[in-house]
């Protein structure tokens, strides 16, 4: 609700804001989604919409099966070469502003279907805003991605892809990024001492 304070700022009883900021704030909480559910991830998409995880808390529960009425295109599942024209057409039919979420590994990069019939990621055909990894992603990850999308909508502006930064990089991974094996072996030695 941080955005609300800026919108309603001041005690004078009137709002001073840019119109864009107000619109973005409003858009963020009323996402009409188009679930382009093709494959396995659709099952988890049901679960996100279901009672336990309840995507309605984020104002994004209303599916619209007409691209002209929807804001967010969820690409849920593998996109085959044969499916790609349909996906592109649906994206083109959506009216601006529109966002695309790649739900799961297949929609993000093709996953392990690295073969003659699968497109390696929906972003080969349409621009993607948020990538949610997982095969299929857990509902928690989906909600994380959705919140990231809301953050992005609030900021407005560019359409650059975003990823969820890890809360904490694992220690070994931190060391690996330095590409220094001696540090890794030192670290392992230290782990043994700790034991």
């Amino acid at each position: 609700m941080g955005a609300l304070k800026t919108v309603m700022g001041g005690d004078a009883g009137f709002a001073t804001t840019k119109l864009d900021a107000l619109l973005n704030w409003a858009r963020k909480y009323s996402l009409f989604q188009y679930p382009f559910a093709t494959a396995c991830c659709g099952m988890e998409f049901f679960a996100v919409a279901g009672p336990r995880y309840d995507v309605a808390r984020f104002g994004a529960e209303a599916p619209r099966f007409s691209p002209r009425q929807s804001d967010v295109l969820w690409v849920v599942g593998t996109i085959s070469q044969r499916q790609a024209p349909a996906l592109k057409r649906i994206y083109e039919q959506m009216s601006d502003p529109k966002w695309v979420v790649a739900f799961g590994t297949c929609a993000s990069c093709g996953g392990f279907y690295d073969n003659y019939t699968t497109i390696p990621g929906a972003d080969k055909v349409i621009p993607v805003d948020i990538y949610i990894p997982g095969c299929p992603p857990r509902p928690e990850a989906v909600l994380d991605g959705l919140m990231l999308l809301m953050e992005k909508i609030e900021k407005g502006g560019n359409r650059e892809a975003m990823t969820v930064p890890p809360r904490e990089l694992p220690r070994l991974a931190q060391l690996r990024t330095r590409a220094d094996t001696t540090i890794v072996s030192d670290h392992i030695g230290k782990m043994k001492e700790d034991k």
């Binding site: 070469q81 790609a84 024209p85 592109k88 073969n115 003659y116 497109i119 080969k124 055909v125 621009p127």
Partner: peptide, 14 residues
């Protein structure tokens, strides 16, 4: 003899 990774896209990639 068909290579597994030989794709034949219907539409051009971005």
């Amino acid at each position: 003899d068909y290579p597994i990774d030989k794709t034949q896209p219907l539409i051009e990639y971005r």
